[in-house]
């Protein structure tokens, strides 16, 4: 995409020695990891382990107390980099009084989409999450799962090179979850890189690489097969217990 060869070689996301404290509590402790171009990177960890905190540091909404986050080779936070990723927060940040279409139009405009291109992208994104029939409903009339899907659609609007998704499939039924995963894999095959968090083991298996996170520490980073081999087990769940020292929630 018009980048210099040097930029092609740097990791998409490069986290170096990042720590984050809230008061006396250390929520992230010296975390380092790379996300490479064209992979799905999954963060797996129990509730409260620091996944969302790490995601927010990557997006630049929050700032690390120590360490650096680089995206596309540039240090975060940086305004121009905010255009280059799509973000889905863990809690749906939607305007309840507005219709889905109005929400989508608003966010699309913030990413610089306008006119027929904007409408086209809204259709395409809503197609992926299977919500095109509900475009004109107000969000307050949406179910929990529909809101999750709408949030996902918003993150896809401007066709970003990088998707950052915090628990994208929570509250979504198995059938739709599968079709969303098919879509994520297809996006990856077309060159989009994805960072996501999950609780679900069979989702972790679909990632290219997984980072196991526990009590704010990254305990292992490897491919699903690599984690199983290292721990001498045959499921991610067991690998997590062996490598992380406890069961994920």
């Amino acid at each position: 995409m018009g980048q210099s060869p040097a930029a092609e070689n740097v990791p998409l996301v490069e986290i170096r020695g990042v720590s984050r404290r809230f008061g006396a509590k250390t929520v992230l402790d010296d975390v380092s990891l790379n996300v490479e171009r064209g992979e799905i990177f999954g963060l797996l960890g129990p509730s409260g382990s620091g996944k969302t905190t790490l995601i927010k540091l990557i997006t630049g909404i929050d700032k690390a107390d120590e360490g650096t986050v680089r995206m596309f080779g540039e240090t975060m936070p940086k305004l121009s980099l905010l255009q280059r990723y799509g973000y889905m927060a863990q809690s749906d940040a939607l305007y309840q009084e507005l219709t889905a279409r109005e929400n989508l139009r608003f966010f699309a405009s913030l990413y610089g989409l306008a006119g027929s291109r904007r409408e086209e992208r809204i259709r395409a994104a809503m197609e992926i999450v299977d919500l095109n029939d509900h475009l004109n409903k107000t969000v307050s009339a949406y179910s929990g799962g529909m809101k999750r899907r709408l949030s996902l659609a918003i993150s896809l609007l401007h066709e970003p090179e990088l998707l950052i998704l915090d628990e994208p499939t929570v509250g979504i039924d198995p059938v739709l979850r599968r079709s969303i995963w098919e879509e994520l894999l297809a996006l990856r095959d077309r060159g989009t890189s994805i960072v996501l968090t999950t609780h679900v083991m069979d989702e972790a298996d679909k990632c290219d690489r997984i980072g196991l996170i526990r009590d704010g520490r990254l305990t292992a980073v490897d491919t699903p097969q690599g984690l199983k081999n290292r721990s001498g087990t045959d499921s991610i769940e067991q690998a997590f217990i062996v490598l992380g020292g406890g069961a994920p929630s």
Binding site: T59, G60, I61, L79, S80, L82, Q83, Y87, A89, A93, F107, L110, Y111, G112
Partner: peptide, 8 residues
């Protein structure tokens, strides 16, 4: 927060 994760 979501708004501030866009380039506004």
């Amino acid at each position: 927060e979501r708004l501030l994760a866009t380039p506004i």
